[in-house]
Design a protein around this nucleic acid. Structure first.
Lengths: 199, 199, 199, 199
DNA sequence: AATGAATGAGGATTCATTCAT
DNA sequence: GATGAATGAATCCTCATTCAT
């Protein structure tokens, strides 16, 4: 993840079989960076180029377009899980991490309203799985029987997350974070600092 | 000089200029139906085919991809405006109409969180315009100085709409409407019947 | 030729059958103006629009793309014939008129090296005809048995014209005229004022 | 996501990366042959087909329409440069090579009157560059201070070349060479054998 | 195991030409 | 006779995917 040039337009030599694991990581990193800026609808060749590997390597590690998206999102989800599992995790803190990821990644936003009629991610089981992992992580750190808002609102936890994800727009990270926080506030939910999880 | 129209083949009937208005309407209808299911990122040829016209007709009526999207969305917005302007309009009623459109059209959902980093619609002025028309319509029928939620949440009206749009997912209309209502309820907002505006 | 708006983007009403002759003239004028600027490879619709008529009118008067080019060029050739037939015509004067047309019209330049392998006009008999009319007009006003340059150079009159046409390039009329005159000078030919024929 | 490659059909053999150089050469050859006959305004797909490669290969090697034209013309220019740089080069000999290329390639003819109002090549810097390389090559082998024709004719070298290029027409190579020689003769310029440069 | 060229289908767009009105 | 909409083939170009090396 560090030994690979991430500036686009690099054409490195074949670094040999040893680089396999590193290549995978480089691809995920490259994909994350590109997805963050351009969304999921990007030529795969661009990801490979930015990762500094050939097209074939991408296909070796990820059988299709969804696989790499899943790998990128998996890292987001994992951080949220780690934040939830950490010593002294608070709901506010975990939601802060979740929110941070929402502001970082257009793809992650998409994940959380995946299964929408036009969702790029819908109809892919990995999206549901990842979404459920987020849900489990969040529930795990909330008080037993916790409910947001009105008592008759069903499934309110992930509903709230989806709602916030709908609010996260804007060109700059700062602006997106601002709107996300405003959204949580509208829901009456307190959210900790918006930041990545750092063990 | 660069075209070799096969001058031998049979041509389907040219239905003549009288068909122009009908064709335009057919294109908008076809686009709406396709957008509703697949979102805005659809081959234009598909729209033309479904409308039962040649590709050229689409380009004649709509100079580019945005133009037809704008035409489709404009109808959604117009209904909301009409609902807001109608005799005896109530906030709940207008929001019901708005919500109905959210449940009908993936494209309309997209409009209301346009300007997201990866938004298909962002960076197109028509999206901003339409979005502002929705805002004006809604504000016009709310009590003076109305605010949703917490008093320090900025710009809360459209923020709430964006949030609800984030919640609208699901394969069936029924399910989408259900989630939209749940979202409004989480925000503490009462919404009238979810239905199209009918003068 | 005068009653028709030549500014592009005009959409006049149907002016009725009486306008037929005027329409033809308007088309030729429009075509000439557009050809002068953009060359022959222009959408026919553009010509019709500039002429202020429908596409169909163009096809009524000119069965194909070549026909309108021929009509435009025919006017150039006619002026040269008139210059040659006029009272007190001199070779230098007629060549001046010819040269003026060369500097005015990319299409006319093309005519005079028509039948080149890639000539847009080649393979169309009208090009040969027009070219021959130019030749007859020029020969008619030269002294009997006149020859340019070396005595063994065959067909030297039209060869010289073709050569000069090859020299006529440049963005401005002034520059093109300058180069045309320089070309004639290289051939040792005296050319009168470069101007249109005015009876 | 926007592509539906028919994953069922048989694919022609992928001849592998080794074919790259050969493909490039095949494309240039195909382009030269087609340009010679039809000029530069040819569908790129035709070139690819004649070269026996897919469309994509053409775009891989040549990013746009100009690039392949430049590659083809560059070879013409290079031969002239080599002829000019060769041991014992004479003006007549170099002009013979130049003339040979004029008779071979409609595209090369076009290059030498590039910047005409409707010239396909004008406004492309590569055309000017190549044209200047021809000029330098010719000047380099002419006697110091050489001038063609009248002493007041400006820029007479390339003017003469342009003039000859205007004269080069005709269906057969023989005829084109004949007219080219006649043109040079009219200018009083002696030209050596019309043939390609062979080191 | 990596490279990156080749393939070709698909989508966007333009325009010659026809023809209902 | 005029209008201008409709048609759709042709061209451009992109990119997912395969595969020789």
């Amino acid at each position: 993840m560090t030994q690979h040039p991430t500036s686009e337009e690099r054409r490195p030599a074949n670094r040999g079989p040893k680089a396999a694991a590193g290549n995978r990581a480089a691809l995920v990193t490259a994909a994350r960076e590109i997805y963050a800026v351009h969304g999921l609808d990007v030529p795969l060749s661009r990801i490979a180029r930015r990762a500094g590997v050939g097209q074939g390597v991408l296909y070796r590690h990820f059988p299709d377009r969804e696989a790499i998206a899943a790998a990128v999102l998996e890292e987001n989800v994992r951080q949220i899980e780690q934040a939830a599992a950490a010593e002294g995790a608070t709901p506010a803190g975990v939601l802060g991490v979740l929110t941070w990821h929402l502001t970082q990644s257009a793809a992650f936003i998409g994940l959380l309203h995946a299964d929408g009629a036009s969702g790029r991610l819908s109809a892919h089981s990995f999206a549901r799985e990842l979404s459920e992992r987020v849900e489990r992580a969040l529930r795990g750190c909330l008080p037993e029987g916790h409910r947001l808002g009105a008592p008759d609102a069903p499934d309110d936890l992930m509903l709230a997350v989806a709602m916030v994800s709908g609010a996260v727009t804007g060109p700059t990270h700062r602006e997106r974070a601002h709107r996300a926080l405003a959204a949580w506030r509208l829901l009456g939910v307190t959210v900790g600092p918006v930041r990545p999880f750092e063990g």
